[in-house]
């Protein structure tokens, strides 16, 4: 599947400031019904978003069901967002729902990699900064949008453009996101190095090569 490049994005921000939001919560296993990367958006946060397991009646107190957060494309979260199961369905579900970026104080490492490979931008920020942003956003979610500039590695509240925050991302991850690159194609540029490694390794560890 082609990946949507990520350069600049401005969007409504939904705060979900729990720590350790695991990928079972992002998409319960029971919502992964088809042999496909599609059709998962409906199951996003299903256990919190709907009143009954398997049902589709919105749970009114869940942030993504509230009118103030209509069209949210950025999530604000606590520590260790996306921990647990390696299921890439969590990222596919977020993407299909319309989420483009997640700002959290830390991420599960497998989830982080899955994001980068699917055009979803994970932004690690200090917990204090996350809370500060959340405080601003909840005052008027539709007005207090956040603008993210990935090439510049900055973000700011649309209403307070002078309050720019910068964030870290590795150059390789940034390149994949900005250019919407396919990791396999990038790696196949090193095919000769892989073949050379293998030829030498076969001498040293012949039992590995079944």
């Amino acid at each position: 599947m082609s990946i949507t490049p990520f350069t600049q994005h401005t969007g409504v921000v939904a705060p979900l400031l729990r720590d350790n939001i695991d990928t079972d919560a992002i998409i319960p296993s029971r919502e992964m019904k088809r042999v496909s990367k599609q059709g998962l958006g409906e199951g996003l946060f299903a256990a919190w978003r709907y009143t009954l397991p398997g049902g589709r009646e919105p749970q009114s107190d869940f942030v993504l069901n509230q009118g103030d957060y209509t069209g949210a494309s950025i999530l604000l979260a606590g520590q260790n967002f996306g921990c647990g199961s390696s299921r890439e369905h969590a990222v596919w579900a977020l993407r299909e729902f319309g989420i483009r970026a997640i700002i959290a104080s830390s991420f599960g490492s497998i989830f982080y990699n899955n994001c980068v490979r699917n055009g979803l931008l994970p932004i690690p920020l200090d917990a204090a900064q996350v809370e500060l942003l959340a405080e601003r956003v909840v005052r008027d979610p539709q007005q207090q949008r956040i603008t993210i500039d990935l090439p510049a590695q900055t973000l700011a509240l649309a209403a307070e453009p002078e309050g720019i925050l910068s964030f870290d991302i590795r150059e390789g991850d940034k390149q994949m996101l900005v250019e919407g690159l396919d990791g396999i194609a990038l790696t196949l540029k090193h095919a000769e190095a892989i073949d050379a490694f293998e030829a030498q390794d076969k001498q040293q560890r012949p039992w590995v090569y079944l």
Partner: peptide, 11 residues
């Protein structure tokens, strides 16, 4: 993840 599994299998 699955995408990385594809990468590992292909390369």
């Amino acid at each position: 993840g699955s995408t990385e599994a594809e990468h590992a299998m292909a390369t």
